[in-house]
């Protein structure tokens, strides 16, 4: 027990040696963030907006292809978008303004643009983030965040989350097995009470583990800062490669603005 867990967070990583894999993590972070900013700043009501979305999609799919991230992997990552989809689908029905006919239904034109824009922007950003998470190991991402001067406290919280997700998950799993071994079946109000107790117990256990980890850290001279190894020097050409994606998107945006 304990050993052999695949690692829930590490599972998002697809090993490889593509140009995207080899980029320094902080370059990829900057690149994805810049891409998202360009996508989000596209005006949804502009007549050329759908064309721009197409251009962005082409750019991000090209990046995915270079990274060797398959369509299945990309499609699965879009599951997190489901709540947005529900909201976006509602918009054309509740928004006011001039109406248009779509598939025999009368919907608001501005609502359609807003909903479609929301959906397109979320999808594009998630696709870019998926390429990032598929080509960068979680701990490399942390190093990237650290290099981008994210506050130490946040980096450390994220690091502990990655390290202990499976440990806490294992504990939860053992508690579930122990519950069910004594005839517990989830569902119903009584079930909710038991689940609440489980969550409480898990919280206490994790809290106590946190205290023990802190003791172990102090025992090895922890002073509040996580010591890190030497940072690799970044080749300017790597910046150029990393910025290809946001620059391509920015070019699409600029073209749209000039034409409109």
């Amino acid at each position: 027990m304990g050993a052999g867990h695949g690692g829930t967070l590490v599972a998002r990583y697809v090993p490889g040696s593509s140009a995207v894999h080899r980029l320094e993590p902080h370059l990829k972070l900057v690149s994805v963030l810049a891409f998202a900013v360009v996508v989000v700043s596209t005006p949804v009501h502009a007549p050329w907006a759908p064309v721009a979305y197409g251009g962005y999609l082409l750019a991000v799919l090209t990046a995915a292809a270079v990274a060797g991230v398959g369509p299945g992997r990309l499609a699965r990552s879009l599951v997190v978008e489901v709540p947005f989809v529900a909201f976006a689908v509602l918009l054309p029905f509740v928004a006011r303004g001039p109406q248009v006919e779509v598939l025999g239904l009368s919907v608001s034109q501005t609502g359609l643009a807003a909903g479609g824009g929301l959906l397109a922007k979320a999808t594009l950003s998630i696709l870019a983030a998926t390429v990032l998470s598929a080509t960068t190991e979680p701990r490399a991402l942390l190093r990237g965040l650290e290099r981008l001067r994210l506050p130490q406290a946040l980096v450390q919280i994220l690091m502990f989350m990655i390290r202990y997700a499976d440990v806490v998950g294992g504990e939860l799993q053992r508690m579930r097995v122990a519950r069910e071994s004594r005839g517990f079946r989830s569902g119903g109000l009584r079930g909710l009470r038991v689940m609440a107790a489980t969550a409480g117990a898990l919280f206490i256990r994790s809290y106590e583990r946190g205290e023990r980890v802190h003791l172990a850290m102090l025992s090895r001279g922890y002073t509040g800062r996580l010591p890190t190894g030497p940072a690799a020097v970044v080749d300017p050409r790597a910046w150029a490669v990393a910025l290809t994606l946001p620059l391509a998107a920015a070019a699409v945006l600029l073209a749209g603005m000039l034409s409109g």
């Binding site: 304990g2 979680p138 701990r139 942390l142 690091m159 502990f160 990655i162 390290r163 202990y164 440990v167 583990r209 023990r212 980890v213 003791l215 172990a216 850290m217 102090l218 025992s219 090895r220 001279g221 922890y222 002073t223 996580l226 010591p227 890190t228 190894g229």
Partner: peptide, 30 residues
């Protein structure tokens, strides 16, 4: 704390860094 090395009972408490190598390096880097 350099002179006294304490190995705690649960290695999951002691090993908190993402890789074994980084974890062993934690003390010396401190």
């Amino acid at each position: 704390r350099r002179r006294v090395g304490v190995v705690f009972q649960d290695p999951d408490d002691q090993l908190f860094m993402p890789t074994v190598g980084e974890d062993v390096a934690f003390g010396p880097r401190n």
